[in-house]
């Protein structure tokens, strides 16, 4: 923006620039890793569980950020991939007794296949169509989970066995905090690498001008589809560990509201900006904890918030400079 040069940067912009500086980035990383390591020791059980949930949201939001922020495709049924991951693990481990770690590849493949099934026909069309088809797809997945016997119907699956790693049983709140911390860090690294990759630049190009991108030899459909599949895999990873963390899943965990919350976190934080999206995820999870009294009005508050962001600060609280 041209006007940006003329005025003084706001304190927030100075803070972002400070944190973003390449020479300081490693310091920030080290501080965050240390915080993640010590948190279960200093926080009580309740706080640890909430923070674990926030880390799950970080994974989901970084995944949706690839679809919405990087490739510019609106996905309103993202919870569907989360559900595919969770249910695949639930069915394989609880009903067929498959080892948890062996079941993970199946869950990832299932999510990728779901991404292709829904993406391949619609990515050729206008992005509005994709938005509403993903919305429909999210509902199909939820209805299907509710109607099938293998998914436990409306009550869902329960008694999903806890995994163990080399004899270490992952079962306490702090164990799961570390599991999700590792997952969030991996998601962060993957997002960062994708952002700077050739594919990441192709997404940027397609997002800004599809026709020009295609004229430069970028395969439009394949580029979008890859964003869609990678986003689906992130969602499935979240779902895989979500299912074993809770030990029980039901169709209502994967409702439209869930998809909307994930989207809100991404939009709030700043589409395409990794630290912004992480911040958004934390705000969305921790915000309601701080505003417990508002419970019945919680969604209304969030909806108005989303509308205000779009009208007054569409690039989020920590905007991505590249867009």
């Amino acid at each position: 923006m041209a006007t940006d040069e003329a005025r003084r940067p706001t304190p927030f912009e100075r803070l972002y620039a400070y944190l973003d500086a390449p020479n300081r980035r490693h310091t920030v990383h080290v501080i965050i890793i240390l915080l993640l390591i010590v948190t279960p020791f200093i926080a009580n059980q309740y706080t640890t569980v909430i923070l674990t949930n926030a880390l799950l949201y970080v994974v989901l939001c970084l995944g949706l950020n690839i679809v919405v922020g990087y490739a510019g495709l609106l996905d309103l049924g993202y919870a569907a991939f989360f559900a595919v991951g969770a249910y695949t693990i639930g069915i394989l481990t609880q009903q067929f007794g498959v080892n948890f770690w062996l079941a993970i590849p199946f869950a990832i493949v299932a999510a990728a296949v779901a991404g292709v099934v829904i993406g391949a026909p619609t990515l050729r069309l206008r992005s509005d169509y994709l938005a509403i088809v993903t919305l429909g797809f999210g509902e199909i997945v939820r209805f299907t989970a509710r109607n099938l016997e293998i998914t436990g119907g409306a009550s869902g699956l329960f008694a999903i066995p806890e995994p163990s790693l080399f004899g270490w049983r992952i079962d306490s709140a702090s164990d799961f905090f570390y599991v999700f911390a590792v997952l969030a860090v991996l998601a962060y690294i993957a997002s960062q690498r994708l952002y700077h990759s050739r594919l990441g630049r192709a997404w940027l190009y397609v997002r800004h001008d599809e026709d020009a991108a295609e004229a430069m030899g970028i395969d439009r459909v394949r580029t979008k589809l890859s964003a869609y599949i990678i986003g689906a895999i992130f969602g499935a990873m979240g779902g895989i560990f979500f299912s074993v963390n809770l030990g029980a899943i039901s169709p209502e965990s994967f409702s439209f509201e869930q998809s909307v919350m994930i989207l809100l976190a991404v939009v709030l934080g700043g589409m395409g900006k990794i630290p912004g999206v992480i911040l958004g995820a934390f705000i969305i999870v921790l915000g309601p904890e701080l505003l417990r009294d508002l419970d019945s009005l919680r969604l209304l508050v969030f909806a108005v918030l989303l509308l205000l962001i779009m009208l007054f600060r569409p690039s989020g609280i920590w905007p991505d400079k590249r867009s």
């Binding site: 919405v68 609106l74 938005a131 989207l263 989303l306 779009m310 009208l311």
Partner: peptide, 12 residues
Amino acid sequence: LSILITALAVSL
């Protein structure tokens, strides 16, 4: 993308 998200927000 912005106007689609705005429409979603209005719906919510």
